[in-house]
Amino acid sequence: MIDSGYKHSLLARKILVAMAPIVCPPEIEDQDLIHASVDALEAFMSSCTGQVQSATAVGLYAFEFSSCLHPAHNGRTFSQLPHDKAQAWFELWWHSPLVPMREFAKKTKGLLAMAYYELPEIAEQLDYHPEKWIRLVARRRLDLYGDEIRAKEAENTEADPLMAALEAHR
């Protein structure tokens, strides 16, 4: 695994923290999972290329500062907006006819939502327990077919040279 040690800048973190309650389920605030989601996203981005990291940062800053230009925002950046105005700003990007704005909104939502739904608390809430399932069926597999599986595993390194087999086939 590549871990470049990527860290969100303070500003990027501030923007993501403001964005999380809009793009993730609103309960994220009451659940106190905003920072956990942003941290998980940070870990994920550590494996992305430098280009992806830079493009994300550029997108976040553009999203943050272009808000100042909106007449109804009184010069405030996205992270300074009250919730309803911040939500409207995100929606404007989400539905934008301009592909880069729309793609930024979609991709950032995608990454934050992925981080949120991977938290153990949320898996529990969804009644999603894959590890338990894996343990159960892995045991069942060995109970039912253990001997056959072991025999086949042993076969994997037995000699079976290609050219002799091909010759026999011909």
Binding site: V23, C24, P26, K109, M114, A115, Y117
Partner: peptide
Amino acid sequence: PSIVAMTAPHYGRGL
């Protein structure tokens, strides 16, 4: 769920 949430065309309450 994480990948569904990532790709679903929804956000917020809809998601």
